[in-house]
Simulated assay, not measured.
Amino acid sequence: MLLDHFSMSSFSVALDTLITLNLVHSQPIYECKTYGLKDNKALSDISIELTTDGNIEDIETDKDSVLIICGGFRSALKPEPALNKKIAKAAQSSATIMGLWNGSFYIADSKIKIGESISIHQDNKAIMQERFPALHLSTSAFTEEGSLFTCSGPNTALDMMLHFIKGAYGADCSQAVAEVIGSDRIHKTDNKAANRFLRSDTHTPDCIKDAILLMESNIEDPLSIDELTKLVGISRRQIERLFKINVGVTPARYYMEYRLTRARQLIQQSNLSIFEVSVACGFVSAAHFSRTYHRFFGQPPTDTRRTFQEE
């Protein structure tokens, strides 16, 4: 279920994981279909409109279904009665239900039994606390409550999907999917960066998790490290030290790697020009973006697009 302004990166991770599961399993398990709220289309957070397989009225679920509600940074959080009914019906049929980014809002609004906690993006925590005061909200990693899975953004979507596969189909399947995605979708140069992005460490200090979420939410107009420190309430020296301990790199390096990895995804998965990608990922010029991208990935962005299109 793709909400308007849904996160393309979260959607891509979830879809890629299930398709890869079909490839590594002895036989295909899932048929993947997309749905829009009202029309047979949905607009992503990077202004790419996808034609869907149907609209919300076409959704049918049973005990073997996985219903994924995919939101995004600019998805309007308001009651959607038709969606609430579909979520409630899915819960009654014992289907697996997942919330990506702020898809969790609609799961909570459907009034189904949730359990102890639910994950939500940091930017939506305030409205969730006001709307659902009885819920325990988590903004880090993902949560599992029986057949309900929620995560707060694209960086934890893969963790959540691999965890689901491990529980449903075993550790071997989960590991096989992780290896295929790691070797097939991720360039050797950005493998370490991806491992950092996908880390789900309960021991990481909340201030570092909050800083990372702020970075994720400010790609087109990046925050300075001084602005980050003020927002999370610690000194620059502290954030530098804690990032090195918990993430392995400085916050500036992490931020740059994240923006470059997002740029790589846009180059591979969208029709945006290299200039448009550079703007979307917060670079001052296309030339600066191309030089930085080349140093990090070992090839210019034009070569990345050409190689991906030829595969």
Rank of each mutant, 00 (worst) to 15 (best):
G71A: 15
V180S: 07
E116R: 15
C173Q: 14
I245T: 00
K192A: 09
N271L: 09
N155V: 15
P81F: 03
E144C: 05
I120P: 14
G103R: 01
N195W: 05
I165A: 10
I107F: 07
D64C: 04
N55E: 02
A286C: 02
L260E: 01
E227F: 04
M215I: 13
I274M: 11
G298R: 10
T52D: 09
R259D: 08
M256S: 04
F164N: 00
L77W: 06
D53G: 09
L266H: 03
E227R: 12
L242D: 15
A286W: 13
G167E: 15
K111E: 12
T292I: 11
S119Q: 00
K86T: 08
R237N: 11
R131M: 11
G153V: 10
V249S: 04
R241I: 05
E145M: 08
I274E: 00
I239W: 10
D39Q: 05
A90R: 00
T51K: 13
T17M: 07
T139I: 07
M8A: 01
S224M: 11
V177C: 05
I234M: 01
H294K: 09
D62Y: 09
N55P: 06
K192N: 13
N218A: 01
A171I: 05
H136F: 07
Q27I: 08
R131T: 10
A90C: 14
E145H: 11
N124M: 10
D53Q: 05
S273R: 14
E240R: 06
A193L: 06
S285T: 13
F296D: 12
E31P: 04
I274H: 00
L67V: 00
D123F: 15
I120H: 01
T304I: 12
K78C: 02
F289V: 06
F149W: 06
N55H: 06
A14G: 09
Q269K: 13
I69T: 02
Y258L: 02
S183H: 15
L135H: 02
F275R: 08
A141F: 14
F11R: 02
L213W: 11
Q129N: 12
D206G: 01
M1V: 05
S152C: 03
S119G: 07
T202E: 14
L50W: 03
H25L: 07
L148M: 07
G103Q: 03
S104K: 00
L3M: 06
M215C: 07
R131H: 01
E216T: 11
T189I: 12
D58N: 09
C173F: 08
G71N: 13
D4H: 10
D172G: 07
P28H: 12
R306H: 11
Y255P: 05
T156M: 15
N155T: 14
N195C: 14
L231V: 10
P300E: 00
G248E: 09
V279W: 00
S200K: 13
D16T: 11
Y169F: 14
F283S: 12
P205F: 05
L228W: 03
Q92F: 05
G233W: 08
E310T: 08
G54C: 02
V232Q: 04
A88S: 08
